[in-house]
Computed example of a mutant assay.
Amino acid sequence: MLYSADPKLGGVIEAVRLQQAPLLACGVEVEIVSCDSPDSPWLNGQLPVQALGPSKYSYGYTPHLLPWLRANAHRFDAVIAEGIWQYHSFAVWRALRGAATPYYIFPHGMLDPWFKQAYPLKHFKKWLYWPWAEYRALRDARRVIFTCDEERRLAKKSFWLYKVNAAVGALGVATPPENGEGLAAGFLNQYPDLQSKRIVLYLGRIHEKKGCDLLIEAFAKVAVRDANLHLVMAGPDPTGWLPKLQAHAEELGIPHRITWSGMLQGDMKWGAFYAAEVFCLPSHQENFGIVVAEALACGKPVLISNKVNIWREIEAAGAGFVADDTQAGTEELLNCWLALNTEDFAVMRAKTLQCFQEHFHVKRAARRLVEIIRECK
């Protein structure tokens, strides 16, 4: 159960999509329900979705959801609300509180206290909504499932009225396509100016919370060290921030050192990962970071801030570098990478694959979700 299956909205639908095959392998049948309009262009048959919209406003209200839940809940062993702050999680609570079918909630980082600090007005509005809706939905859920222990710990700091039955699950990604050289060649054929470049890849939404401006400023500082350094900024621009970032790159004198590819999917996305030397995400808030796991799966060291909630696992595994979510911290990440000699870089690359297999493979995440649901029966 989720607000929307639109891939441009970020990690929630991607997390749901990635778990379909491994859950089926565990013997679990999954039905996805969203508040999308049935004629939404992203509902193209690649991911079966029961669309109960159209919904109204950004809240995602649709009058069809609550009666559908009440009529169909008996068909399921469990209902999972993916994400909060929109109508679908409130509707799940209204339909299933005290019902025979238990419900679970994945907050997907939406209780992170960073939002309180970054958007105080929005947080005040959420406080008006919190006591009578989201607090109750979380309180009465069979389990509130956090994707890592860091998320569970941080969630306690957003609202003083807080009570949940917490469980720590996982997210993960599947093993990527193995024809890395061919995929990289396909990507570089599309962007021939990147041939022979040392690529720093950013892949995600062009959004304030992702620290895109920090990366551009830090890259401008280190670019003078090697004429072959090049930054690829890949992702959609949902808030219209891109022109300002491009203008800032002009001011810094590095527009020719940055490629803005827009959103990459399928082979082009994997080709970008394989063509890159490192992946960088200096985010101010990142609940998990599916793209970080994807980079590790492709054998790429990751340069991340300590606001990416899986940073402890990355640091302990030696699979990348971690620093503060500041310009100085991001510059430190890039400099640490550039300081590696060939042998040390090869060692770090080997550790990325080990880290992926031990912590972030989607099969592990699917098994953990099944364990949580079975433990609660």
Rank of each mutant, 00 (worst) to 15 (best):
M1V: 12
L2E: 07
G10T: 09
G10M: 09
G11W: 06
E14P: 00
V16D: 06
R17V: 00
R17F: 02
G27Y: 05
I32S: 05
V33N: 11
L43G: 06
G45K: 04
Q50D: 04
S55F: 02
G60S: 03
T62C: 04
T62I: 04
H64V: 02
H64W: 04
H64E: 12
A73G: 10
A73P: 13
H74K: 15
D77F: 03
A81I: 05
E82W: 14
I84Y: 08
I84S: 08
Y87C: 00
S89Q: 09
A91T: 05
V92P: 11
V92R: 10
W93Y: 14
R94M: 10
R94P: 00
A95I: 11
A95E: 09
G98R: 08
P107R: 02
M110I: 00
L111S: 01
D112H: 07
F115R: 05
P120E: 07
H123L: 02
H123F: 12
H123D: 13
F124T: 07
W127M: 12
W130E: 08
Y135R: 10
R139W: 02
D140Y: 15
D140E: 15
A141Q: 04
A141T: 03
V144G: 04
I145Y: 08
C148D: 07
D149M: 02
E150V: 07
E150D: 07
F159M: 01
F159A: 00
A166K: 06
T175Y: 01
E181D: 13
A185T: 13
P192E: 13
P192R: 13
P192H: 13
D193V: 06
V200F: 15
K209L: 07
C212V: 15
I216D: 13
E217G: 01
E217D: 13
E217A: 14
F219S: 10
A227C: 00
V232R: 04
A234W: 08
G235P: 10
T239K: 11
W241K: 14
P243I: 09
Q246T: 10
Q246P: 10
Q246E: 15
Q246Y: 08
H248C: 03
E251Q: 15
G253S: 11
G253W: 12
H256A: 14
I258L: 02
W260E: 04
W260D: 04
S261D: 12
L264V: 13
W270T: 02
A272R: 10
A272C: 08
A272I: 07
F279Q: 02
P282M: 05
N287H: 08
G289R: 02
V292R: 01
V292L: 09
A297R: 02
G299S: 01
K300V: 02
P301L: 09
P301G: 06
S305P: 05
K307M: 13
I310R: 06
E315L: 14
A316Q: 15
A316M: 09
A319M: 11
A319P: 11
F321N: 09
A323E: 15
D324R: 10
E332N: 14
E332T: 15
N341G: 10
E343F: 11
V347Y: 13
L353T: 11
Q354I: 13
H359M: 03
H361R: 08
V362E: 04
K363A: 05
R367T: 08
R368C: 04
R368H: 03
V370G: 02
V370R: 05
I373K: 02
R374F: 00
